[in-house]
Structure formats: structure tokens, C-alpha cells
Simulated assay, not measured.
Amino acid sequence: MKKQNLIDALYNCIAACNTCASACLGEENVKMMADCIRTDIICAEICATTAKLVAMDSSFAKEMVALCQKACKECGDECAKHDHDHCKKCAEACRKCEDACKTYAA
């Protein structure tokens, strides 16, 4: 169950990060959103790799989950700085994924 909860949180986070990055590109001041876009893309990639490794019960899963937890925290912190709805939703998904990583690793 912990494994499936983590995988679900990872895929929700990937979707939120991709949605946020795409929406940020449509914002009036895209340059101001550069760090948000960058962390969204990185977080989504790390979450995707983590989901694959966890699903395969890889010997690298534990380390990847720890890295993912860190990436989700960083992305959540960055998105939380912005008032856009897509950023707030992404920050929330990142926090949930960060928590799922902690629970899985415990």
C-alpha cells in the first residue's frame, strides 16, 4: 500500500509540475517565472524516474526516493512563492509527494 500511495503521489506531482511549467510559460513576465519553470521540469523528471525505480523494486529506489523528497521540497518552496493558481496547486502536489516519500522511506 505504501508503494502504491507513493507511485500515485509521484504521478500526481508529475502532472502538477508539467501543468505549472506550461502555464508559467504563458505568464506575462516569463523571465520572473524562470526558476519556477526550471524546478518544475527537474522535479517532474526526478519523480518520473523515482516512480519507475520504485515500481521495479530497484536497489536504487531508496536513494532515489530520498532525492525525490528533496526535489519535491525545493519545487514546492519555489511554487509557493507565486500567487498563480497553477503554482499553488503544484506546491500542494509537491508537498503531498514529499510526504509520501517520507512515509515510504520510514
Rank of each mutant, 00 (worst) to 15 (best):
K2H: 07
K3M: 13
N5L: 14
L6H: 08
A9Y: 04
A9H: 03
A9P: 03
Y11A: 06
Y11F: 14
C13P: 05
I14R: 00
A15T: 13
A16N: 04
A16G: 08
A16W: 06
N18E: 15
N18A: 08
T19Q: 07
C20V: 10
C20N: 10
A21L: 02
S22Q: 10
C24P: 14
C24A: 15
G26Q: 07
E27S: 14
V30L: 09
M33N: 08
A34K: 11
A34C: 06
D35P: 08
R38W: 07
D40Q: 04
I41S: 11
I42H: 02
A44S: 15
A44H: 09
I46K: 03
A48L: 02
L53T: 10
V54P: 01
F60R: 07
F60G: 05
A61L: 00
K62G: 02
M64G: 00
L67Y: 05
C68H: 03
E78P: 02
E78G: 09
C79S: 07
C79D: 12
D83R: 10
K89I: 13
K89N: 13
E92P: 01
A93H: 06
C94I: 13
R95L: 05
E98H: 15
A100T: 05
C101S: 05
T103N: 12
T103I: 12
A105C: 06
A105E: 11
A105P: 02
A105N: 14
